[in-house]
């Protein structure tokens, strides 16, 4: 049993002299760009006004704050998920001015005046949007963590096909695009689901697309 953690610094004596004897030593920071002594030329925070789920919200944010963190940490809208924070998974998908984006790769400060819709704005447990209901009906999820992003994408995928935006699997680029399994799968590929609910998600989207013709 280890002793209770003592937070008065317990600097260990091994430090003295060992660095010089090291066969090789690396400095953790060594690989990153050198720290500049210069400071930013202006303020490091900004005030932005967003319309979120129809409601105007004024926020003062660190310029570094992503739209995702503005939603989750400032507005406490945690339905939009952080899966990777690097645009590699799609869990953070929400819509801005009607288009789906990865909110982790966008700064809040870039969205002054924009209209943002999150999963919370789409429907509530007692009042599900058709896509949300279709996901429940077809079991289009398991752990639920990628689910809000999947639903955000799913809604927009139908619109994007109808708007004639081509995809990697579109055949004739000058013809109307049909809503096919292949089109949906390709366009949903920016939303990873490690539980593997893809087939069920496809069923849910197909149902909503058919019902909304």
């Amino acid at each position: 049993m280890s002793p209770p953690i003592d937070f008065s610094l317990r600097r260990r004596t091994l430090l003295a002299g060992t660095a010089a004897a090291a066969a090789f030593s690396a400095v953790n920071r060594g690989g990153a760009a050198a720290q500049s002594s210069a400071a930013p030329a202006g303020p490091e925070t900004s005030t932005v006004t967003l319309t979120v789920n129809g409601e105007p919200r004024e926020l003062t944010v660190d310029n570094r704050t992503t739209l995702l963190d503005a939603l989750r940490e400032h507005l406490k809208l945690t339905g939009t998920k952080k899966g990777c924070d690097h645009g590699q998974c799609g869990a953070c998908t929400c819509t801005v001015n009607g288009e789906r984006i990865n909110s982790c790769l966008s700064l809040a400060v870039m969205h002054d005046g924009d209209e943002v819709e999150t999963i919370e704005g789409i429907g509530q447990p007692e009042n599900l949007d058709p896509m949300q209901a279709a996901f429940v009906e077809h079991d289009g999820f398991q752990c639920g963590y990628c689910t809000p992003g999947q639903i955000q994408s799913a809604r927009k995928v139908i619109e994007e096909i109808r708007a004639g935006i081509p995809s990697h699997v579109t055949g004739d680029l000058t013809a109307e695009i049909a809503i096919t399994d292949a089109e949906i799968r390709e366009r949903m590929s920016g939303n990873i689901c490690r539980c593997g609910a893809y087939a069920n998600i496809l069923a849910a989207i197909t149902q909503v697309a058919e019902e909304s013709v």
């Binding site: 945690t78 339905g79 429907g123 949300q132 209901a133 999820f141 639920g144 809000p148």
Partner: peptide, 10 residues
């Protein structure tokens, strides 16, 4: 738990 998960409220 479906309705909570599809609405981001879980």
């Amino acid at each position: 738990d479906g309705p909570l998960k599809v609405t981001g409220t879980a």
